[in-house]
Structures are given as C-alpha cells and as structure tokens.
Nucleic acid binder design. Structure first.
Length: 398
DNA sequence: GTACGAATAT
DNA sequence: GATATTCGTA
C-alpha cells in the first residue's frame, strides 16, 4: 500500500532542468560515475522528449534541431566520460570503438554486432572499475541509451533525407513548373488598340513565338506555353515524323522527340485566330492557310491552325446546338446566333483584350458576315467556346 | 504537290 | 479535353 505509483516514482520524480546544456555540464559532479549516470539520465530525458516531439517535427523543426544538438553534445560528453573512466585500460581500444560506432552509423545492419562490442565494453568497465552493482545498472542503461541514440540518429537521418527529398521533389516535380513555363503569353493583350485594323497593323501583330532549344522537348508534356517552333524548328519537326514505323517503335523518347512541341493556344493567340476567322467570313469558310496568314504569327503552322480550327468548329457547332436551336441559325453554312443574323455586330475580338467587357458592340463592323465565330476571343486562359456563344446570344441583344 | 477535313493518336 | 498526326480526298 505504501508503494508509490510507478509513474510517480520514476517519471515524475523531480527532474533537474538546467537553463542550458552548458549549465547542466557545469553542474555535473567530478565523480566520473555520477557524472556518467547523470549524463545518461539527461540524455535519456532528451531522447524521450525528442521522440515525443518527433510527431510534430514539421511544426517544431527548431525544437527538433535543438534537442538533436543537445543530445549530440551530451552524448559526446558521455563518451568522453566513459573513456576517461576506463582510461587506464581502454585507452587503447577507444579508437577502435569509435571506428566501430562510425561504421555502424553507416551500416545499421551491424547494430547487433556493435551491441555486442558495447557489451564487451561494459564488461571491461566492470572489471576495470571498482564500482558496485549500481554501475552495472548504469552500464546497461548506457547500452540501452546508446542503442536508442543510434536509433534516433538513424531516424533523424531519414527524416532529414525525407525533408530533402520532399523539397527537391517539390521543386523538380511537375507540380511546380510554375509560371515560367507559360510566361510567354504575350502581355500585349493589354494593349487595347483602337480598332481592329490598327491592332492588326501594330506591332502587337507579330507574336513572335520563338523556339526554345530542342532540349525543351523533354518538357513537352507540360504546357509548352506559346513557345513554338521557328522556321528552323519547323523544318525539324516536319522531317522526323516521316520516320519509319520501325524506328518509331524504337523508344518512347524517340517518339516524343520526333513529336511536335505542343502548341499552347494562349488567349492572345486564340484572339488572333478568331480575328482572322472573322475577317475570312467565319470558321466554316476560312481555311487554315488563310487564317494562318492573317494571324501573322511567327512559327505558326498550317497544321496547328488546322487543328485549332477543327476544335473550334467542333465547339462552336456543339455549343449552340445544345443551348437553343432557335438562337442559332445556319447561314451559308455558318452557325450564327440570331443576334448576329440581326446584324448586330459585336466586335468581340476587337482586340480590346478584355473579354469580359460587353462593350464590344461598338467596335467593329465586320461587313455583314459576322460569323458567330467572332465570339469572343479568349476569355481567359481557357477561352471557353461555349461561353462565347452564351455571351453573344445573351447579352448582345441590346 | 498542296490544302483540306475527318479520324485517330498522344 | 487539347493538340498533334495520319489518312483519304479534291
């Protein structure tokens, strides 16, 4: 009955907490035995705490660091102490032991072996020192501590490695191909030319989509941005595709390398595209070549335009139909909204560059044939084809 | 040979 | 879903 609960007798016993490790070290008794025991005890406490906050290492990285540091220092001290203690006999062997330790830090598999050696150490201490059984206890404790320390060190190492890997993967991973990848979107969108013609003539016109080095091909999976091939690149891209099937089956890399860099249709580019379409009388009449010429974009190929046109037609065809049959009519093969039929002209792509502004009414009068395609240009990065139409049918009717 | 549109691949 | 490539045709 008189026994005290375990937690009180051990864990909760008053523990001395120095302000600093240095303080702690300075308070150590001169007696090697006592010193060692105190050291080990303190180390144990530190380790205990270390394990506790290990769960929060992300939140408490600094605490981890401090603890880690403290443990290292005390460990060092403890080892010094031990060596000192057994100096007469062990002096010669200490280096060996250290080597052993180091080795094991590198190679965890040998922990057992190391443990054995440590046991051997303890036995040495046993006969070397005149201490009593308490020493024995401490020795065992020491071994245990050492093992724990090793374990913790390993953990810390792995933690550090993890952190490193995480951070590096964060940077290197696809997740972060940030802005730079798509930065080439022309800022000119803001230019706000007065009229379409003006815009056309202006320098804004020349979207120069210069090609990056071939090395960039590796990145092609991502948004290659508006980077495109230059003339030279075009040549490059045109020839490889002719590779024989046997070659093409070669490696995936080869295939990818032979594949064109993905054209990123930036809003600005799309706007130009739509502009050209309007001038040519609509997506149904305009041909890729004409469009490309009108667009005046360096490096833009017919194929790209063709492909984009295909998609454009798909969308413009599909979107209105789903919406309302009445709001769309077919004129000369062109899908148009009734509004447009009525002659309203929305200068959507007036180049205002501000897709959201309903003001396009004012701008341009495209001869009567404003095909629906004039639909707004690129709304934002993802010009939504459908929204264009909605916009048009919905708001132009003023 | 070129341009196109549709289909298909990536 | 977006873009590239291929294929049949005019």
């Amino acid at each position: 009955m008189g026994s005290v609960p375990a937690e009180l007798s051990l864990d909760l016993r008053p523990t001395f907490v120095p302000k600093t490790i240095t303080d702690f070290l300075s308070t150590l008794p001169s007696s090697q035995n006592n010193k060692l025991s105190l050291l080990n005890d303190f180390i144990a406490r530190l380790e205990h705490e270390f394990r506790k906050i290990d769960a929060f290492k992300r939140e408490l990285p600094l605490s981890m660091l401090l603890l880690n540091d403290a443990i290292s220092v005390l460990k060092e001290e403890s080892e010094k102490c031990m060596s000192y203690k057994s100096q007469p006999v062990l002096e010669v062997f200490i280096p060996l032991k250290k080597e052993c330790d180091e080795e094991y830090e590198v190679n965890n598999n040998k922990d057992k072996e190391c443990k054995d050696k440590k046991n051997w150490m303890s036995s040495v201490q046993l006969w070397n020192t005149t201490t009593t059984s308490t020493n024995n206890v401490y020795d065992k404790k020491q071994h245990h501590h050492r093992l724990v320390i090793k374990k913790i060190e390993d953990e810390r190492k792995s933690v550090a490695e993890n952190h490193f890997q995480q951070s590096s993967s964060r940077n290197g991973g696809r997740g972060f191909l940030p802005f730079s990848a798509c930065t080439s979107i022309p800022v000119t969108t803001v230019a706000l030319p007065q009229t379409k013609e003006e815009m056309k003539e202006s320098d804004v016109n020349r979207l120069s989509l210069l090609t990056p080095p071939l090395a960039v091909k590796n990145l092609r999976k991502g948004c290659s941005s508006s980077v495109s091939r230059t003339n030279s690149n075009r040549e490059l891209s045109s020839s490889p595709p002719t590779a024989l099937p046997s070659l093409r089956t070669g490696s995936l890399q080869q295939q990818q390398a032979s594949r064109k860099q993905r054209r990123c249709w930036s809003p600005e580019l799309h706007r130009r595209f739509v502009n050209a379409l309007q001038k040519l009388g609509g997506s149904q009449v305009a041909t890729p070549k004409q469009i490309r010429e009108l667009m005046q974009v360096d490096g833009l190929t017919n194929d790209e335009v063709k492909s984009h046109l295909q998609k454009y037609r798909l969308h413009t065809r599909r979107a209105p139909s789903t919406k309302t049959d009445e709001s769309v009519v077919v004129l000369g093969g062109l899908w148009m909204s009734q509004d447009q039929c009525n002659g309203s002209s929305k200068g959507s792509s007036s180049g205002s560059g501000s897709p959201q502004s309903p003001l396009h009414l004012a701008t341009r009068s495209r001869g009567g044939t404003d095909s629906m395609e004039d639909e707004e240009d690129a709304k934002s990065e993802s010009y939504s084809w459908k929204s264009h139409i909605d916009n048009k049918t919905g708001k132009v009717g003023v």
